[in-house]
């Protein structure tokens, strides 16, 4: 690990201001992803701003009947919250399908959204990777791509976003609340939060420099039946090959987001009207512009089958 200086801050505004003051700094929350990457020198911040003890670890009901989730609430506490378990089961299910008990105790809501890809070429510092070293090339496109993206990818990057939680947040239309070094608050719908790789895969979100996530806001409960179906190589403590988060309503409509297929949780609201036509019709439309590799083309069929299972369960 490269040397770094360290400071603790006491308010979100102080955190953002500290980051603006110290070029090359990073916020440290749970650290379960950042420290791992620092050990491998994939991340090399010169200064860490520890936000871990800020008062951003609460869940509050909003005036409109939704939930405001503090950026630093642990994944365990979010999944165990009674409102989440009752009204946002897709979120609890997604969280519990991710990582291990130890990691969920430490990992935070905002950190989960911002976790980096698990593409093996991003982790292997001997390989070119446009996300790790912009302009160095992509070893994954011609390499082992079984785990990697089938849609939204570019000639520069085919990495996937590894989060389960973010898939549920996408299906729920969550809104991300931030503060910048000038104290300005911004609301970003999650549909606009992640960027596709294009020519700049190292820029993963629309967050500006030194902007800090303070909370994630969920709209009022939408009702319906909630599902999160994760398909992986072992049944626990593994990243998804694909995952399908779905909220199915009585009128046959649905809110459906898919994980493990792109650089962001994949959702297309405009085709959700075809959900009643079945998994095949929906999946064909969702992946109309897919460009899978030979090794990962199976993911599209896997999504269809996972969704088919969900729709069956929803009908029964």
């Amino acid at each position: 690990m490269k040397s770094f200086t360290y400071e603790r801050v006491h308010t979100p505004a102080e955190a953002a201001a500290a980051a603006a003051r110290m070029p090359g700094s990073k916020f440290l929350a749970g650290g379960t992803n950042l420290l791992d990457l620092m050990k491998l020198q994939i991340e090399t911040p010169v200064h860490l701003i520890d936000i871990g003890k800020l008062e951003l670890n609460k869940i509050e009901h909003t005036l409109t009947g939704g939930l405001r989730i503090g950026a630093l609430l642990s994944n365990t506490d979010l999944a165990a919250d009674l409102s989440v378990r009752r009204d946002y089961q897709i979120l609890a299910r997604a969280l519990l399908a991710g990582a291990s008990g130890q990691l969920r105790n430490k990992a935070t809501t905002a950190g989960n959204l911002l976790q980096r890809t698990r593409c093996p070429y991003f982790y292997d510092t001997n390989q070119p990777c446009n996300k790790r070293v912009p302009g160095s090339g992509c070893a994954a496109i011609t390499g082992f791509s079984r785990q990697l993206a089938v849609i939204g990818s570019s000639n520069a990057c085919i990495a996937t976003h590894p989060s389960d939680m973010a898939v549920a947040m996408m299906a729920l239309d969550a809104v991300i609340e931030t503060i910048n070094p000038k104290g300005k608050v911004r609301l970003i719908p999650i549909a606009d939060f992640y960027r596709l790789p294009g020519k700049t895969p190292h820029i993963e979100t629309v967050l500006e420099k030194n902007e800090l996530i303070t909370s994630v806001v969920l709209p009022p409960p939408s009702g319906g039946m909630h599902f999160y179906h994760k398909v992986r190589d072992r049944s626990s403590y593994a990243f998804a090959l694909v995952s399908v988060g779905a909220i199915l309503h009585k009128d046959g409509s649905g809110q459906i987001a898919v994980g493990g297929v792109a650089a962001k949780p994949w959702r297309n609201k405009s085709i959700e009207k075809v959900v009643p036509l079945g998994a095949k019709a929906f999946t064909e439309k969702l992946f109309a512009k897919a460009r899978p590799t030979q090794e990962n083309a199976f993911k599209i069929q896997l999504v269809e089958r996972a969704l088919e299972g969900i729709l069956k369960e929803g009908r029964s």
């Binding site: 440290l28 650290g31 420290l35 860490l48 130890q102 990691l103």
Partner: peptide, 15 residues
């Protein structure tokens, strides 16, 4: 009272 991976945590995070 909570279990964590002590390898993925800086000592300084535990004031």
């Amino acid at each position: 009272g909570r279990r964590i991976n002590s390898c993925l945590s800086l000592a300084l995070q535990h004031e």
